[in-house]
Simulated scan of single mutants.
Amino acid sequence: MKGKRYSIWRLIVVVILGAIVGSYLAEYFSIWYKPLAYYKSIGMASPTVVDLNILKLSFQIAVKANIGTVVGAIVALYVNYRI
């Protein structure tokens, strides 16, 4: 029997959506359980700027992760592989 084939794009979208939903749920439930409100910001503190005289580019990436983000991504992975 052939194994299931998974698209990498589907996996990325599912994990991102799971992290977003988990983050919103953690923010909502942090009213009753304060440790859910704690988050860690991972990324660059200030943007990197490339100035080419006629074109100025700035680049910055940051991720705010909390417990809900991690749990949401794990649940999304589990659901993705169960379907």
Results as ranks from 00 to 15, higher is better:
Leu52Pro: 00
Ile16Asn: 00
Tyr6Arg: 01
Tyr78Ser: 02
Val15His: 00
Lys4Asn: 04
Tyr38Gly: 05
Gly72Cys: 08
Leu17Arg: 02
Asn66Glu: 02
Ile20Glu: 08
Arg10Leu: 13
Tyr28Thr: 03
Gly22Ala: 14
Phe59Ser: 11
Trp9Ile: 11
Pro47Trp: 04
Ser30Glu: 06
Leu25Glu: 10
Leu77Tyr: 02
Trp32Arg: 06
Ser7Tyr: 07
Ala37Glu: 13
Ser23Arg: 15
Arg5Glu: 15
Ile16Gln: 01
Tyr6Pro: 00
Ser58Glu: 15
Lys4Pro: 00
Arg10Ala: 12
Ala19Ser: 15
Pro47Glu: 03
Val49Trp: 05
Gln60Lys: 14
Tyr6Thr: 00
Ile54Leu: 04
Leu36His: 02
Val63His: 15
Lys4Trp: 01
Ile54Tyr: 03
Asn66Leu: 08
Val75Gln: 01
Arg82Gly: 02
Val63Thr: 12
Ile74Ala: 14
Ala62Asn: 13
Ile31Phe: 07
Ala76Tyr: 07
Tyr24Ala: 09
Tyr39Leu: 05
Ser46Thr: 10
Val75His: 03
Val15Trp: 01
Ser23Asp: 14
Ile20Met: 11
Lys34Ile: 03
Ala37Ser: 15
Ala62Arg: 15
Thr69Pro: 03
Leu36Thr: 07
Tyr38Phe: 12
Leu17Phe: 14
Ile83Asn: 10
Tyr78Arg: 02
Val75Cys: 06
Tyr6Cys: 00
Lys2Asp: 14
Ala37Met: 05
Tyr38Ser: 11
Val63Arg: 11
Thr48Trp: 10
Ile12Glu: 02
Ile20Asp: 06
Ser41Phe: 04
Val13Glu: 06
Ala45Ser: 14
Lys56Gly: 04
Gln60Asp: 06
Ile61Glu: 02
Leu55Tyr: 08
Leu25Asn: 08
Lys4Thr: 08
Gly22Ile: 12
Met44Thr: 09
Leu11Gln: 02
Arg5Ala: 10
Ala65Lys: 07
Pro35Lys: 05
Val50Gly: 06
Ile74Glu: 01
Leu77Ile: 01
Val71Trp: 00
Ser46Lys: 15
Ala62Trp: 13
Leu17His: 07
Met1Ser: 13
Ala76Val: 01
Lys56Phe: 03
Tyr28Gln: 07
Pro35Gly: 07
Ile83Ala: 05
Ile20Arg: 09
Val21Lys: 11
Tyr33Ile: 12
Phe29Met: 06
Tyr81Ile: 01
Val13Phe: 05
Asn80His: 10
Asn53Ile: 07
Gln60Thr: 05
Val70Ser: 00
Leu11His: 02
Lys56Gln: 12
Leu77Ser: 03
Ile31Met: 06
Ser30Leu: 06
Val50Pro: 05
Val79Gln: 01
Ser30Cys: 08
Phe59Pro: 06
Tyr33Ala: 12
Tyr38Arg: 12
Leu11Arg: 02
Ile67Asp: 01
